[in-house]
Design a binder for these strands. Structure first.
Length: 637
RNA sequence: GCCAGUGUAGCGCAACGGCAGCGCAACUGAUUUGUAAUCAGUAGGUUGUAGGUUCGAAUCCUAUCACUGGCUCCA
């Protein structure tokens, strides 16, 4: 007998040569059904792993993050096997588990169509039915290379060659299919019943657009059909929150074929935007920022000096004025720098925090455009801070705190990423080291977790990015903090220090919302169009019961407007049920219903968006309530 | 930009080689209504655009533009 240590500190006695699966079976039948993989002595492994005396064991199900990865990864193998059966000669590349499922990239003749997807799903179902055991085997490096060469899996040669020297090279076999893989995997294909292929796309080998385009198929897999159905339903629901759909329904913004990637803001969207910016200006004023505005178009010489001409040429738009080339600004910094340079600064003047709601134009690839989320012109809530090197950490922390405050007003969850020096960037290694360290130390001081993105910085400096999620879970970069030691150098910026000498300031570029357009897109999806009272383009709509109540309604509207409340009047000759339905579809926080009773009592019947309940208000109380919500950046209740 | 898909009335959709239609919206009239759709009628189209195949094209082919999902890029 052997003794196995379980996570709850208990010890389980098992016969010699027992597997992790045997342990699961001994605990309960349901666990035996659900177990996907095991962690033995801290290492993830298959449930067929034979246990030794003294091993510690944790069993993994789909409830665990590790379990989701295992099942999804097995799903990708299942799909790859089906594809290889249907399209002989297809070469495998990589097929990982991802956040919401898995994909596999194939190099094949031709492409995969929607029709093929059905055939692949049918073949996958067949393989599930065959219930093939999934077995691990290990080869030496040489054997492994020979094995993949025999199988004509030439991409795998590169993968094996890139494996570290000491790495054990394992494969997983299910029936006729075998794939290089670290594992672990579920025990058999029969466990992968609840799957669905969700998309076919092209994807470049190694993600490099100079490489060959591969066929990528995305899929999802769950232990149970009910979970799969629930997930698909959730996706359907999320689509109803899509800002492009809501933007149309709520008449907030539009796109025209004449302006791909150039959004139009409509009256209601404009209110939303202006309310957001009023809030932004107030907070930035409090935080010590001064707002400026710089020109949209500036002479090409400026862009040579800033380095954009060399590093950002492809993304810029150009125009000619009096036979000279001008650039339509893709960033606000060079113009901002000119404004900074207008006078001399003492060290006592720093930090200078100069903000600009600057409209920038960038030539994004046509295939990259997406509603308000990725456009070709957008307004950055930009600011440039000119500081001494000693002020780096303190100022970066202040910015992080400001951004955190703003995101919390909207109940956003976000994550931060630190991006380091990219290829084709300006400046010395030393500058980059100081700059990167400045950002890193601020992050460490704040103590919030962040992800490291090697080589993803701006061409002039490293950055901290803030990412928010849209309705279907895609992360979009919004806030950003970029530390720049190049621009001050190139524009010969300086301030007079306490020693009376000239010194070079450090420049911080930062945006909190990022792009107003993108942020509004996220905001629309976040609230599903039902904006809190303070943000709602229309805060209240007055609905009359009959024409007899029009005068009173007009009177109420005049008074609400005078109080600064955004109000509309629906005095059409329609039934009140119909008017309520329309106001609901417009997601207006308050409906004020005025009929015989209200005229008599000189009050308001107010129907709340949140509960659908109707409450009687005096005009004054209603105004007070909306004013309070507006002031507190709040929603109803 | 690349791969795949989709473009039909303001919006959502049907017709898939044989007369371009439905619902909502719009307009007109009736109805004066109490908490998610009152009734009747009218009008609205060079089927994204340009070529081609065909007796005949929304439908098939080619090109192009836009959009959608990815890749790449990025706020």
């Amino acid at each position: 007998m052997i003794n196995i240590h379980l996570p709850d500190q208990s010890i389980m006695e098992l016969p010699e040569n027992s597997t992790a699966y045997d342990a699961a079976r001994k605990i309960s039948r349901s666990l035996a059904k659900e177990v996907l993989a095991a962690i033995v002595n801290g290492k993830e492994t298959d449930i067929t792993t034979v246990l030794k005396d003294g091993d510690s064991l944790r069993l993994i199900t789909f409830e665990d993050d590790e379990g989701k990865v295992v099942m999804r990864h097995s799903g990708s193998h299942l799909m790859a096997q089906a594809v290889k059966r249907l399209f002989p000669g297809t070469q495998l590349t990589i097929g990982p588990a991802i956040e919401n499922g898995f994909y596999y990239d194939f190099d094949m003749e031709g492409t995969i169509s929607a029709h093929d997807i059905e055939a692949i799903e049918a073949e996958m179902a067949k393989i599930v039915k065959e219930d093939l055991p999934i077995e691990r085997f290990v080869l030496s490096r040489e054997e492994a290379l020979n094995f993949v060469k025999e199988q004509k899996e030439f991409y795998k040669i590169e993968l094996i060659e890139n494996l570290p020297e000491e790495e054990e090279i394992s494969f997983y076999r299910q029936g006729e299919f075998a794939d290089l893989c670290a594992g672990p995997h579920v025990a058999s294909t029969g466990m992968l019943r609840a799957f669905k292929l969700t998309a076919v796309t092209g994807a470049y080998w190694h993600g490099d657009s100079d490489n060959k385009m591969l066929q990528r198929v995305y899929g999802i897999v769950f232990p149970k059909k009910t979970q799969l159905d629930a997930y698909l339903l959730m996706l359907e629901e999320a689509k109803k929150r899509d800002h492009r759909k809501l933007g149309k329904e709520l008449d907030l913004f539009m796109m025209a074929e004449e302006g791909p990637g150039f959004p139009f803001f409509l009256p209601k969207g404009m209110i939303l935007r202006n309310v957001l910016l009023d809030f932004w200006r107030k907070k930035h004023d409090e935080a010590g920022y001064q707002e400026i505005s710089t020109p949209l178009i500036l002479n090409e010489s400026l862009w040579h000096q800033s380095g954009h001409w060399d590093h950002y040429k492809e993304n810029m738009y150009y125009t000619t004025i009096d036979e000279q080339t001008f650039v339509i600004k893709p960033m606000n910094c060079p113009g901002g720098v000119l404004a900074f340079k207008r006078r001399m600064y003492s060290y006592r003047d720093l930090p200078q925090r100069i903000s600009e709601l600057g409209l920038v134009h960038r030539h994004e690839l046509s295939g990259a455009l997406h509603g308000l989320m990725r456009v070709r012109n957008f307004t950055q809530d930009d600011a440039h801070l000119y500081i001494t090197p000693e002020q780096i950490q303190e100022e970066v922390i202040k910015i992080i705190e400001l951004i955190d405050y703003i995101y919390k007003v909207f109940d956003f969850e976000y994550h931060m990423e630190l991006s380091t020096r990219p290829e084709n960037s300006m400046g010395t290694d030393e500058d980059w080291e100081i700059a990167t360290e400045g950002l890193r130390s601020a992050l460490e001081a704040i103590g919030q977790p962040y992800k490291l993105n090697e080589g993803d910085g701006a061409f002039y400096g490293p950055k901290i990015d803030f990412h928010l999620r849209d309705s279907i879970g895609r992360a979009w970069q919004c806030g950003t903090i970029q530390l720049d030691m190049q621009m001050p150098e190139r524009f010969d910026l300086n301030y007079i220090g306490a020693d009376g000498e000239r010194h070079r300031p450090v420049m911080l570029h930062r945006a909190a919302l990022g792009s107003i357009e993108r942020f509004l897109g996220i905001l629309i999806e976040h609230y599903a169009g039902a904006f809190p009272t303070w943000l709602a383009p229309v805060q209240a709509r007055i609905l009359t019961i009959t024409d007899a109540h029009k005068d009173y309604a007009q009177d109420v509207m005049t008074k609400l407007k005078a109080a600064g409340i955004r109000v509309e009047l629906d005095d059409r000759n329609e039934k009140v049920g119909f008017k309520i339905r329309e106001a609901r579809l417009q997601k207006i926080p308050y409906m004020i219903i005025l009929g015989e009773q209200e005229v008599e009592k000189k009050n308001l019947s107010v129907r709340l968006r949140k509960t659908g309940k109707t409450i009687e208000f005096s005009l004054e109380d209603f105004i007070a309530r909306v004013e309070k919500e507006t002031e507190n950046l709040a929603d109803q209740n």
